[in-house]
Design a protein around this nucleic acid. Sequence first.
DNA 1: AAGTTTAAATTGGTTAACCAGATTTGTATT
DNA 2: AATACAAATCTGGTTAACCAATTTAAACTT
Lengths: 239, 239
Amino acid sequence: MRVEILTKSENEDVQKNIISKLRDLVNYKNLEPGDKLPSERMLSEKFGVSRNNVREAIQKLEFFGILKSRPQSGTFIANIGTVAMNGMFDDILRLEDPDFKSLVETRILLELKTVRLASLRRTDEDLKGLRAALDAYNKKVLDGKDAVEEDLLFHLAIAKASKNSTMNTFMLIITPEIITNFEKYHVCDANQSFIGIQEHEDIYEAIKNQDPQSAKEKMKVHFKMLYQYCYNSGGEEDK
Amino acid sequence: MRVEILTKSENEDVQKNIISKLRDLVNYKNLEPGDKLPSERMLSEKFGVSRNNVREAIQKLEFFGILKSRPQSGTFIANIGTVAMNGMFDDILRLEDPDFKSLVETRILLELKTVRLASLRRTDEDLKGLRAALDAYNKKVLDGKDAVEEDLLFHLAIAKASKNSTMNTFMLIITPEIITNFEKYHVCDANQSFIGIQEHEDIYEAIKNQDPQSAKEKMKVHFKMLYQYCYNSGGEEDK
DNA sequence: AAGTTTAAATTGGTTAACCAGATTTGTATT
DNA sequence: AATACAAATCTGGTTAACCAATTTAAACTT
């Protein structure tokens, strides 16, 4: 087990190393947007790593949008200038794994917006999906079972109804980690789940009535305990 | 060029196809959290695709946290229940590429929060970084040059100072696409860049003075034109 | 028959060979 | 000398072979 963690962090170190070397190379050679990088084979030899490692690093930089690979042609610097590229290189290198508090903080922010957008943009189809998710949650709670997942699915249905694909994606990214942490630390007990039924219904009503103000308010109420978990047990200022 | 797009969408279709088949398999076999998936070789044969395709699909599902691969052992269903997994499978399959409006909308949301957090949590070190980014921007504008990138770097510095790694990551994800779109559609002209100098200074001052209210206000002012671009030219309700 | 040890098979990960398309280079033609 | 054409090279992507760790099966010991 310990070995696995070590090798994983080793791999990440290798990748970060390659990324920083790529940054240095770009600076040294004064490469500009649109210019072609040396080939993967050349880079792997130059850096003394496998071509796979180079490919993974490039793919990561592609994910963050600063590189662009074209088949049978080469890898190019995206259409952002040298300055932005350098800044982003450093930011990516400095990125750390998200802590739970950071996840919850972001979730609250996202959801107070998605619920508002959902109330403005929801279709009848969305409403059906929300109702279905809600029923599944209620049933689970009334059976006395754990309903963390059904809870999250209701919230994801809201994100879907917001018609903002970026926020939807972001919610999908943070959801699994939140679920596992919730279940690990037992953030919600059975009693809170029961209260949650009415809170969810209130949110649903607000979305149904296309009342953004109320939707946001109801969501805030629903997040009350989450707020406390995030800012009290975490021990931070802010309110 | 057209061919490239076609093959890319073909690849994405193949991947989505595999993901949906994986979902069906999990449901059919009633696999639960912690259970092991069939091996990659078996899946590739079963689905009639290459092992690489299967690996890529698994990696994507790993990115969204619903699978977990362990070397020399197997791929396992993450510690989220069947219901959540099914819901997320569908959501991932339904995910669409983000449009520009969705990106801007998300950016505004994120930044009104990060600037607030930055004003509360910034260290002296952060302040130095913000100052440096600011100077670089001012210099570029006063030289009459395009400063979109330096602008974005200042905003990324704010995200860094917010001490929220999740929001920081999200800002990094959406930044490149915003840059390219800005330059494509010429959202900011030279005059607005000039105005931006003072707006940036105001934001910087608020962060320096650790005044979250003011910080958010100044950022709102700075986003005024962006708001208009997003909601007027886009042609949407909301305000 | 139960427990222990050893060997074979299975696993995700890695490396190396291969592919098809794009690019460059060299050559012949005008 | 400029252009058209052809072959050799170079490219990212893909496939197949290989690896080391793990898991399972088998054999052996007590």
